[in-house]
């Protein structure tokens, strides 16, 4: 195992969000680690190109999978900052060529953030018949001092599958604004899943995910799960637009709200521009299930712990 390639606080937060740290740190595991604006480690494997150029505040990076290459182990990405203040900017490009398959696990960790901004502007393209699974988990510390702006634009080629799962369920969110736009070509399938928890008065979460179905038979799913408690504020907008025949999509927003001053808004938007396409949606915002709460409290949990457990269960 490779030790000391990332600060201890970052490693611990990777563990906290549930990733397998031991596996992530193995010498042979493909990886791209960034410590503020310094590339801490890059490990490529056959068929996978990882390249980065340090900038004043972060990195410009390439993540490329060559045609037909199937990367059979997860590729770990880690973008961390242990400073309390500052700016980190990540500008990655993901190019997944025809017939390739890859699974990336990304962790963004800002454990000491007091006035720290993280920006990510990612562009992604998938060729034909590819699979790209991307999971990103965040930890913004406990002080609510992070301002985080991840943006993704994704183009998904014919018959390819792209899935993005974002989660921020531990610690304090601070200000989080996620924007994803994905374009699905003929026969492609796109799933965008976001999970976020605003548990403090200073937590403000904004999520806007849009899937554009641009090819015949393209399919899309936008699934948003969020919770607001103790004054937290969450707004989720899930958009699906069908511009091609036989395209189908679904938008599913579900939020839990608890505590005075908390606010939660869920806005599903469906648009159909082709008469042979179909989009559906569902949205709900509601309080914590009282029966579940009573059951957990009767087993000795404090109310706050019981609410947290119910929310984590939904997320």
């Amino acid at each position: 195992m490779q030790k000391n390639i990332l600060p201890y606080e970052i490693i611990e937060s990777v563990r906290l969000v549930g990733f397998d740290v031991d596996n992530m740190l193995k010498k042979e595991t493909p990886k791209f680690f960034l410590n503020y604006n310094k590339i801490a480690k890059i490990k490529e494997v056959e068929g996978l190109i990882l390249a980065g150029k340090e900038t004043e505040n972060g990195v410009i990076a390439d993540f490329i999978v060559r045609p037909g290459k199937k990367i059979d182990v997860p590729v770990h990405l880690c973008f961390g900052v242990t400073k309390e203040e500052g700016l980190q900017e990540i500008i990655p490009r993901f190019i997944i060529e025809d017939g390739a398959k890859v699974f990336a696990l990304a962790c963004c960790s800002f454990p000491k953030a007091r006035n720290l901004t993280h920006k990510m502007q990612a562009e992604v393209i998938l060729g034909k018949d590819t699979v790209f699974l991307y999971e990103e988990r965040h930890y913004h510390g406990e002080m609510g001092g992070a301002k985080v702006f991840p943006k993704f634009r994704v183009h998904v080629g014919e018959r390819s599958f792209f899935q993005s799962v974002f989660s921020l369920t531990k610690g304090s969110a601070g200000f989080l604004s996620i924007e994803v736009e994905a374009y699905a070509h003929a026969g492609a399938k796109v799933e965008i899943i976001n999970k976020a928890y605003g548990r403090k008065k200073t937590d403000r979460i904004r999520i806007k995910d849009a899937v554009f179905l641009e090819g015949e038979g393209a399919r899309g799913l936008v699934k948003l799960r969020a919770a607001a408690s103790q004054g937290g504020d969450v707004v989720m907008v899930g958009i699906t637009e069908a511009n091609a025949p036989e395209a189908t999509g679904h938008v599913d927003c579900k939020e839990i709200i608890k505590g005075e001053g908390s606010t939660a808004r869920a806005i599903p938007i469906v648009r159909v521009v082709d008469e042979n396409a179909r989009i559906t949606h569902e949205a709900s915002v509601g309080k914590v299930n009282q029966k579940q709460l009573d059951t957990l409290m009767s087993r000795g949990l404090r109310e706050e712990e019981a609410v947290d457990m119910i929310v984590q269960g939904m997320l």
Binding site: A51, K53, A61, D62, I95, D98, I125, G127, H185
Partner: peptide
């Protein structure tokens, strides 16, 4: 999309139907 750092020449080109 062209790589920003790598010299790799990508093959993927998507077109509109």
């Amino acid at each position: 999309l062209s790589p920003r750092v790598s010299s790799y020449k990508p093959e993927t080109i998507l077109r509109i139907s």
